[in-house]
Design a protein around this nucleic acid. Sequence first.
RNA 1: GCAUCUUUAGCUCAGCUGGUAGAGCAACUGACUCUUAAUCAGUGGGUCCGGGGUUCGAAUCCCCGAAGAUGUACCA
Length: 498
Amino acid sequence: MQQKPNQFIKLRQEKLEKIKALGIDPYPVESSRSHFISALMENKEALLASETSVTIVGRLVAMRRQGKLGFGNLEDASGKIQLYVAQNLLGEENYELFKLCDPGDFIQANGSVFYTQAGEFSLKCTAIKLLSKNIRPLPAVKEKMVDGKTVRYDEFSDIELRYRKRYLDLLLNPDHRKVFELRSRIITAIRRFMDNLGYVEVETPILQPLYGGANARPFITHHNTLDMDLYLRIATELYLKRLIVGGFERVYELGKDFRNEGMDRTHNPEFTMIEFYEAYSDLRGMMDIAESLIKHLAKDVIGKEIFHYHGHEVNLGGTWRRAAMTDLVNEYTGIKVDNSSQEDLEAFCKAKQIEIPKGSGKGKLIALLFEHFVEPKLVQPTFVCDFPKEISPLAKAKPGNPLLADRFELFIAGGEFANAFSELNDPMDQRERLEAQAALRALGDEEANVVDEDFLEALEYGMPPMGGQGIGIDRLVMLLTENDSIKEVILFPQMKNS
RNA sequence: GCAUCUUUAGCUCAGCUGGUAGAGCAACUGACUCUUAAUCAGUGGGUCCGGGGUUCGAAUCCCCGAAGAUGUACCA
């Protein structure tokens, strides 16, 4: 038989025609199910004793036909069971249909459970119905139990294909499906945790006339009817603060932010973040929430405290260190930051070949030293406090030290997991800080904040003292599911056209 | 952005210093009423990522390009 490049599809389409010739609709509307497959597997003896007749549905994932008898494995979202299909039980016509079925087809099977001679718990089929015909063969992945462990053969493992054809990855690699089930449970648990603290979940605009709340380059789009450019949000901060002005006391938003920047194993251009703001709280309150939330997710959702991540062993269970940025810089570089002049720090950076952006003050230099010499070393959870105010335009100054912000970032395994401040609510101070950012922007810093007049006006009407925090969900899921690439925890990661 | 590596059948891969492209699984045909990585017999299937070059001859060597991975830079 001559076979062309799309040989597989052609052959299956021929089968499809044969099925139609039997008067069977290969894509019927109706299906029914009396039991999930897991319900059969969990109640074997009772179903066996009662000889209950059941109807199950799912995808046929393997077939072993031998003349007038055959076996198949049927899989639904809950589990997998072997089908025993014999001509003398189905009748000739129905068995003819079975012979035209392929792995990948969706079918409905009626029958009752029993043990085969080989001792496998199976469904003895009395009828099968085709629910959806597969016309493109699935990549063949076979598995076998060896000493109680599942050994897999010819795994669908090409990383690029797994990301581009995620549906195949999910279908063929149950471990990867599990990661996304866990992601869902983690997000549900986060929402429940915040709800229990009395927070209200809100939704603010993704399309924004001005962007703010973080230092990042935005995606720009255009609204035709309004004939105006809009930005995809880089953060939810400024809108959530407006809600606190509006009388809400505890709000959170869990959703996507978009940043038009580099991509690597911890950055995807669209990513998921939770931000929350609590009136009459402050940095200390935010620290307590971060620690108790993440410990709760580890212990109660995942069920452990030790995680392997980016080559490190991280213990989320212990007491989390709290340290000032300047002390950490001193600890790892030996520099006494408080006693150093801006010139001293610039000289040190130059000696270490660290590029200094235009307009950098002493605070920025301290932050640069921190990033280069401290950040990668912070393996166990560490709250880094006392950020320079200069690089924290939306944070209140630390009481008693006008050069520092009342801010922390949480670092785990050398990466940032949370960022929180006692939020700045002095409208005059906020205006000055945003104008300082605008000056940096004029010097070429494309990631500096822009001045948002409406936000400033909202502050002028009065905003209570409060704590606010952002936690990157993707990285948290990476840590908790022990995946080193963000693409492993995002269902459809950004890829170039191939 | 830069560096290194990868790209061969539907999937997973082999293919040595250049000599007519291979395996397993999947697919197709046939046999088979207790298989389960079913088995047995047979068959078909390739833009060797794309383009150019060197050579009598290129999957293999060289150049350009694409995609992906890793590292690095940027992302305070």
